[in-house]
Design a protein around this nucleic acid. Structure first.
Length: 206
DNA sequence: GACCAGGCACATC
DNA sequence: GATGTGCATGGT
């Protein structure tokens, strides 16, 4: 599946964020939200010159919520982003570099303990912001895997993650590319109403 | 006007 | 443990 997708699409260059911190913010803002709307909110933050841990951390919630508006769920996401920023400040002194030196499993536990950060968001931060070798499961992953009967529809996050983990070289570069490719084929062909004609995955034998 | 978009926490049973 | 619900904007 990986080979077929990579040959068809080529490298996807994920995550579309310029800095690790930007990726982390994007991971929270994109929860159940189209990336285009996330970009609008991110641009609001950039134009205000506040896309930095401390700027956002000390910003009044009302002002932050207004800037996050295009991303939807803006009141909820304001709380969640604040919770993450407070964690970054209190536990790591606001330093991304300090974050880097933490082990994958320890940091994942810490992220999951933050209210508003679940498994997908934690794993997205680990992989796409910090380069840890971990596979990110999302709605597209679920759709592609279940439609191809690689796993049952009742499968949970960890089961999808384990399935991918067991079949992809254990390197961040591969987890990064595989997830991005799954999202790409999901958007193009494996949408809620599938359009399987011309799908690059046609004809594969599992 | 309906449906969808790179979730998560919380209440309830 | 499983299921249902609120959160909200913007594109198609």
């Amino acid at each position: 599946m990986f080979d077929r997708l990579f040959k068809h699409y080529g490298p996807q260059h994920w995550w579309p964020g310029e800095t690790p911190f930007e990726v982390m913010v994007g991971a929270i803002l994109t929860q159940n939200t189209n990336w285009r709307n996330v970009e609008k909110a991110m641009n609001n933050l950039k134009h205000e010159g506040v896309l930095h841990p401390e700027s956002l951390r000390i910003m009044p919630e009302g002002r932050l919520a207004a800037l996050l508006k295009p991303a939807g769920f803006f009141n909820v996401k304001t709380k969640r982003l604040k919770a993450f920023l407070n964690f970054l400040h209190s536990r790591y002194g606001g330093s991304i570099d300090a974050l880097r030196s933490t082990s994958t499993s320890k940091l994942r536990e810490e992220l999951l303990a933050i209210k508003g950060i679940g498994k997908e968001t934690a794993d997205s931060i680990l992989l796409y912001a910090l380069g840890h070798p971990i596979f990110v499961v999302d709605a597209y992953t679920y759709r592609v895997f279940t439609r191809h009967h690689l796993i049952g529809e009742e499968a949970l996050y960890d089961e999808l993650q384990d399935l991918a983990t067991g079949h992809v070289p254990a390197e961040a570069e591969h987890y990064n590319e595989f997830h991005a490719l799954l999202v790409r084929v999901g958007k193009d062909y494996c949408s809620p109403t599938p359009k399987c004609e011309n799908c690059p995955l046609n004809g594969l034998n599992w």
